[in-house]
Amino acid sequence: MIGRFIGIVISLIGLILPWRLRILFSEFLGWVTQAIYFTYFGIFNFILSELRKAKEMESKEKDEAPR
């Protein structure tokens, strides 16, 4: 519902804009989308790499533990 509303508003703005302003508006949308996308995946990849390191530490400790 919210997504559809945002889509309609953005489409309406795009429809009434003249050529160069529409291009600038699209650039703005593009950079906002990229920022969200890369922030999300930056955090996602960071969490994954930390989990991977923790797992490696754990298995290293297990191997070094006295038998």
Partner: peptide, 12 residues
């Protein structure tokens, strides 16, 4: 980036 405007209209 104009494909974003197009996808907004087409999908949303």
């Amino acid at each position: 980036f104009q494909f974003i405007l197009f996808k907004m209209f087409a999908n949303k």
